[in-house]
Computed example of a mutant assay.
Amino acid sequence: MRSEFLPDPVPEDVIGRLLAAAHHAPSVGFMQPWNFIVVRDEAVRSAVWEAFAKANAEAVEMFSGERQQAYRALKLEGIRTAPVGICVTCDPDRCGEVVLGRTHNSRMDSYSTVCAIQNLWLAARAEGVGVGWVSIFHERDLKRALGVPERIEIVAWLCVGYVDRLYEEPELAVKGWRQRLPLDELVFADRWGGGV
């Protein structure tokens, strides 16, 4: 959901259920590295939109020809139109320097935070609430807008709100940006490239 948000407020109890679902996500070493900044304030959302707009202008130039035109046609306005923004962060220091399950892969805290985002997204769908994940920003600009400490990683800005309809397929597929890849092309047997 990127541009079809309705102005209707999302009740506190609904936001509470979404955050509770996120907080019950699995995490490696049970580190629970996430924090959630729930943003409704217009001035803060405007500052976040400015960070997005700067990066989005750069992103447009990374595409060329028809792809650039298709990119420009996408309505990426959820930051301004969704009544709620939720910034999901990851605290790499939550459990100290040595964390069960993160001893050999330092990204496990970020991956665990993504599990929380998926739980939130699934709970939102069950509540009839739309979610859009904004990733087009320079992290330093978003940290400045939200007062996030330097050591904290921003994993997602989620636009959250009611919509007139929930898509049956991902919005980018519906709008022709890209289609779902066939599963049988993505599954290998026993080793990379091995036929199933």
Score class of each variant (00 low, 15 high):
Ala124Val: 04
Ala57Thr: 04
Arg45Asn: 00
Thr103Leu: 09
Val131Glu: 05
Trp121Cys: 02
Arg151Tyr: 10
Val155Ala: 01
Glu61Gln: 10
Arg40Phe: 01
Ala145Ile: 00
Glu139Ala: 05
Asn105Gln: 14
Arg40Val: 04
Arg191Phe: 09
Ile79Cys: 00
Phe52Ala: 00
Ser135Pro: 04
Arg144Glu: 13
Asp93Gly: 04
Glu97His: 08
Val14Cys: 13
Phe63Cys: 06
Leu100Thr: 12
Val99Lys: 10
Arg94Asp: 09
Trp121Glu: 03
Ala20Lys: 14
Glu50Pro: 00
Glu66Cys: 10
Gly132Met: 06
Ile15Leu: 14
Trp34Cys: 08
His23Trp: 07
Pro182Met: 05
Glu58Phe: 03
Ala124Lys: 04
Ser3Leu: 09
Glu185Phe: 12
Gly29Asp: 03
Glu42Trp: 01
Asp190Ile: 07
Gly195Tyr: 09
Asn35Tyr: 10
Arg191Ser: 10
Thr113Tyr: 09
Ala156Gly: 00
Met108Trp: 03
Leu100Asn: 12
Glu58Met: 04
Leu181Cys: 03
Ser110His: 09
Gln179Gly: 14
Pro182Cys: 12
Ala47His: 01
Phe5Cys: 10
Thr113Lys: 13
Gly194Cys: 14
Ala189Gly: 15
Val44Asp: 07
Pro83His: 05
Ser112Pro: 13
Ser46Gly: 11
Thr81Pro: 09
Ala116Leu: 11
Pro83Thr: 12
Ile79Tyr: 00
Phe36Arg: 06
Tyr167Ala: 14
Gly128Tyr: 05
Asp184Lys: 13
Gly194Tyr: 11
Leu100Ala: 15
Cys159Lys: 03
Ala156Val: 01
Phe137Asp: 01
Ala116His: 05
Arg40Trp: 06
Phe5Asn: 06
Phe30Arg: 15
Gly96Asn: 13
Leu122Tyr: 06
Glu77Met: 11
Pro26Asp: 08
Trp121Ile: 00
Arg72Glu: 15
Val187Lys: 08
Val44Lys: 06
Leu120His: 05
Trp192Gly: 14
Arg125Ile: 11
Ala53His: 01
Arg107Phe: 13
Leu181Met: 12
Glu127Gly: 10
Pro92Gly: 10
Val98Gly: 10
Arg107Cys: 14
Gly65Glu: 11
Ala43Arg: 10
Gln32Ile: 08
Ile152Ala: 06
Leu183Gly: 05
Lys143Trp: 03
Gln68Cys: 11
Lys75Ser: 05
Gly161Asp: 11
Met108Phe: 04
His23Val: 09
Arg80Gln: 05
Glu185Lys: 15
Val148Lys: 08
Leu74Trp: 07
Glu12Ala: 15
Phe36Pro: 09
Val84Pro: 02
Gly128Glu: 07
Lys175Gln: 14
Val155Asp: 03
Phe188Val: 03
Thr103Ala: 15
Glu171Arg: 04
Ala43Cys: 07
Val28Trp: 05
Ile154Thr: 09
Val163Cys: 13
Arg125His: 13
Asn105Leu: 15
Val134Ser: 02
Ala57Leu: 08
Glu168Asp: 09
Ala124Leu: 05
Ala126Thr: 06
Pro11Lys: 07
Ala145Gly: 05
Trp49Glu: 00
Met1Pro: 06
Val134Arg: 02
Asn56Trp: 01
Ser46Phe: 01
Val88Ala: 06
Trp192Gln: 14
Arg102Ser: 14
Ala126Pro: 04
Met1Glu: 07
Val129Leu: 08
Ala82Val: 01
